[in-house]
Amino acid sequence: MATGGRRGAAAAPLLVAVAALLLGAAGHLYPGEVCPGMDIRNNLTRLHELENCSVIEGHLQILLMFKTRPEDFRDLSFPKLIMITDYLLLFRVYGLESLKDLFPNLTVIRGSRLFFNYALVIFEMVHLKELGLYNLMNITRGSVRIEKNNELCYLATIDWSRILDSVEDNYIVLNKDDNEECGDICPGTAKGKTNCPATVINGQFVERCWTHSHCQKVCPTICKSHGCTAEGLCCHSECLGNCSQPDDPTKCVACRNFYLDGRCVETCPPPYYHFQDWRCVNFSFCQDLHHKCKNSRRQGCHQYVIHNNKCIPECPSGYTMNSSNLLCTPCLGPCPKVCHLLEGEKTIDSVTSAQELRGCTVINGSLIINIRGGNNLAAELEANLGLIEEISGYLKIRRSYALVSLSFFRKLRLIRGETLEIGNYSFYALDNQNLRQLWDWSKHNLTITQGKLFFHYNPKLCLSEIHKMEEVSGTKGRQERNDIALKTNGDQASCENELLKFSYIRTSFDKI
């Protein structure tokens, strides 16, 4: 039985969820670079991206490699990797027998973001014989899940209580170790020597080791999670996991709180800001991140802002960003909400898709409305799209047979046209069989910064309504002859009103 693990408890099935942008060198404390989270699957090609990484700022997932063999891993080693800020997950990587050479110096898994409450997941690794993470000293947050690894031993010899604050939620089941077939031998045991430290858990006094050649490092209890030197002297209180010299914040392997210019500090002093819960960055760093993602459509890219001495992905609820200094300031009234469309555009074809934009005031991208039916549609669209004030790209209304009016965009005031449909149009209306009105132009103002209007096959939309939009939106004169079809717009509506004058002759039985 794995020490510190839980057996036999019912657990939810383990679901495996399925960018080499360097964020800056980590400095003297770390020998390499800070790398983003990685999802490495199918083959070993991307694994080489770990070569210079000291910190993975995010998670590391290595999974679904069915053609790899043990010899493929023999020359692979990433000794610079010290810390993973989120979680480490391995799933069905064939041929991998140990992690001792792959990650010989991995010391800390912070667990800032977890995989279903777990910071370390080893699942269905069919050839893994031992973990071998002999320098792993601290899992700051989260638990361990090690399950269905039929060859995995050296679990009962690990004292997880020396690595985690609590072992109650560890789930370590259905491994070879369960069948008591392992016969784990710690260093020196074969020669009758006791080389590794022994600890007591559940009444068992057991030597602690990761492999037959690597003991588990056990520091004096007084050192807590700070770690200790090879001689057993406690590291500085700002260290986490390990250090090369005692009581020196510049000799830590990793930091308990924050890293700044080669030393570990309790908090980031001005003019620095907390970033990702582990390091200090200056304003320029946060500003660069903001600008890199301002026009990016890459998933996970955030326009970072500053709030409460932190550089964070977005302002919290009730705050909006001051564009001059990136500071989050309290909103006066309802907060603006910028919604970034991942692929640059979004099609609204149902109430469900409209709900995804609920509360958005600025759309960074283009909207395509293609709704053919739905219950209580006008009210639903207004509830979900009615706060949109600005669209950076274009607005396209296409084959939306259920629409009679666009009044559900009740606050839309600006279409920038930074991206144009077919390279020309910022407003595009095609084949809307029941569209009769755009907006009530006596109450609604709309500016279209650039781009043209396109109207074709809107049989109940009168040309007068379209011409009014040209005047109000500032697009009059931009359109070419064929942009607004004269014969297919309003051709099934009563669009022309003329005053009919009647004269009559009164007659009676005795007068003409």
Rank of each mutant, 00 (worst) to 15 (best):
G232P: 05
H290E: 02
G183K: 13
E97P: 04
Q204F: 13
V265K: 04
P271A: 13
P79G: 13
N257D: 03
N170M: 08
T157E: 09
F78Q: 02
H48E: 14
G183M: 07
K224Y: 13
Q216M: 08
V265L: 11
N170G: 05
V200S: 14
R256L: 08
N257P: 00
N257Y: 09
F103Q: 00
P79F: 05
S323A: 08
E33W: 14
V34H: 10
V173E: 11
G183L: 06
I201D: 12
Q245T: 04
N202M: 08
N295R: 12
I56K: 00
C268Q: 00
N309R: 10
L63E: 02
P271R: 13
I312Q: 05
C223S: 03
N257H: 03
Q299M: 10
L89R: 02
G227C: 05
C239I: 00
D248P: 01
L326P: 07
C209N: 04
N170Y: 05
P197T: 08
H307W: 13
F258N: 05
N42R: 11
K148V: 13
P104D: 00
G37A: 14
L240R: 05
V281I: 11
L63I: 02
L96K: 01
Y87R: 00
C209A: 01
C215P: 12
K191G: 14
F258D: 03
L63A: 04
I62K: 00
P220L: 11
F275M: 14
S323C: 07
E238I: 02
C331V: 08
L60R: 00
K67N: 04
Y273W: 10
N309P: 03
I163L: 04
E57Y: 10
G241R: 05
D159C: 03
I146N: 00
C35R: 02
E147D: 08
T199Q: 10
F205Q: 03
E130T: 06
D261E: 03
L133M: 06
G183R: 14
R162C: 13
T189R: 12
I185A: 13
H48T: 08
G241Q: 05
G318S: 10
D169S: 14
P336N: 13
R141E: 14
G203E: 13
Y171T: 04
V144K: 00
T320W: 08
A156N: 15
P104F: 01
V218E: 13
V34Q: 03
M65C: 03
Q204R: 08
W210K: 06
C252L: 00
H214P: 03
A119Y: 00
V253E: 04
C280S: 00
H302A: 12
N170I: 06
I40M: 10
C182I: 03
P70L: 12
V34G: 04
G95K: 04
G142K: 01
S323R: 02
F66I: 14
C196R: 11
I82Q: 06
N179H: 04
T140M: 05
C293L: 04
C239N: 00
I222L: 04
H28Y: 15
C280T: 01
P70T: 06
Q216W: 07
L89M: 14
N135A: 10
H212G: 10
K129T: 04
E151I: 02
E238Y: 08
V34I: 02
P36I: 12
T320S: 08
V281S: 00
R69D: 01
Q276G: 15
I306T: 05
Y30L: 06
Y304T: 15
K176S: 06
Y319H: 11
H59V: 12
S225V: 06
W160F: 12
R279Q: 05
Y273F: 07
H212Q: 14
L240A: 10
V34R: 08
F103N: 00
G37H: 04
C196K: 11
R110T: 09
T320Q: 04
S213Y: 15
D39Q: 15
N325R: 09
N105H: 05
F285K: 02
W210I: 12
Y118H: 13
I146L: 14
R263F: 11
R141S: 10
N179L: 06
K294G: 10
R46E: 09
H59I: 03
T107P: 00
F66W: 03
C239G: 01
N309I: 03
L64P: 15
C328M: 02
C186Y: 02
L155M: 03
C239M: 00
L114Q: 14
R74W: 13
R297G: 08
S323G: 14
N202W: 07
P187A: 08
N175L: 05
N295Y: 09
D184T: 04
E238L: 05
R141N: 15
T329P: 02
D288Q: 14
I163V: 08
T329W: 09
K310R: 11
